[in-house]
Write a protein that binds this DNA or RNA. Structure first.
Lengths: 197, 197
DNA sequence: GTGTCAAGAACGAGCGTTCGTTTTAGAATG
DNA sequence: CATTCTAAAACGAACGCTCGTTCTTGACAC
């Protein structure tokens, strides 16, 4: 027969999240591959056996983190798009979201590590592909709004323009992560000057 | 009397480059941390001792690769800037350069791995900072040209605009690496539509 | 008893690195 | 030119250690 669950399902997902949170903390501090299982087991305050009950390998933990790393950002972009503001204003709000994720406990430093992993590990590559596409699709709504409100040339292709607009997001994040500049407002002024010459 | 170099200096730098080339090949295939010293020693066709004569640790090899990974690109950007073409035309040429570096043996897949390492390793972080800044400065010449030839609003700040323009380069590279799109020409049309509305 | 769940000792594999030894290049010598 | 000599260069077995993972054990709820 099947055993009756000893603990609530909430407890189980909470444990899972506890492990993932510990893993994120370790990966942020030491990187995906310089964090040992022992590191993140200790960080989670659990035992080896407990962790291996919820994830059957380190790769599975990495994959789970890759799955979740930008889901919050996607949501927030959708909310911004729903407000149907002018393109540059939307981008301003979007950059605010990015700024909150640039901190040492934000999603973006881990996202960069996932990208690196994606270039050599097909399983992570597939996840990164899916998540990055989803982000790109969320931003597309901003560009579609701009096209409808006449901010773009009538013959402009929304997908093509979106490729360029979307670049501004990881481009900003990478500059901030690697060289610390520019400030959000300065970056926004740069965009404004570029797109309305 | 005293010993003189037993082999030519060319031989020594050639050996060094042989090791770095092998390391690049391994890192491309398996990533920085999933490539063992034995992997890249075998790839180089040398012995353990030979490799450790030229580099005193794996970290030193990684640092050496980080130093050199985008130097070729910087040069090519400078050449494009010297031609003083309209901004979008320069970007077109620049994207051609990027395309050549996107292939599985190009510099960019390794650059992404370096970025990831930079977020957790201060030594690599400093190198990445320097190299990324240099790239950004090279692109700045393109924007400065555009400002001089009246392609930008007179009050535009070149550095601020450059932050935005520069984003278009890693932004393109990341989209190509992670999701395979867009084509260069489509991307360029998107930029054109965005900046001349 | 019969099952789940957690604990942590134990394991083999593989890691980066060291080091004593062998080979080799080429100047010195006659 | 032939030989000797020596430090540089290359070699690769061996080392200590840490890795990710498995397995045995037992506590606790039915």
């Amino acid at each position: 027969m099947w055993g009756v669950p000893r603990v609530s399902e909430d407890h189980l997902t909470a444990r899972r999240e506890q492990i993932l949170a510990a893993a994120r903390a370790c990966f942020l501090r030491k990187g995906l591959h310089n964090s040992s299982m022992q590191d993140l087991i200790k960080e989670a305050g659990l035992s080896v056996g407990a962790v291996y009950r919820y994830f059957k390998s380190k790769d599975e933990i990495i994959a789970a983190i890759a799955e979740g790393v930008v889901s919050g950002i996607s949501q927030q972009i959708d909310e911004i798009a729903a407000r149907r503001l002018p393109l540059v204003d939307s981008l301003g709000l979007l950059l605010e979201v990015i700024d909150t994720q640039l901190s040492p406990d934000g999603a973006l430093p881990i996202a960069v590590q996932i990208w690196a992993e994606a270039t050599t590990d097909p399983a992570i590559g597939a996840i990164a592909h899916a998540r990055y596409s989803a982000l790109r699709t969320s931003v597309r709504a901003l560009v579609a709004n701009a096209a409808e409100s006449g901010e773009l040339p009538p013959e402009a292709d929304v997908d093509e323009v979106n490729s360029a607009v979307f670049s501004l997001i990881p481009g900003y994040a990478l500059q901030r992560l690697l060289i610390g500049t520019p400030e959000r407002e300065a970056y926004l002024r740069g965009i404004r000057a570029l797109i309305t010459p």
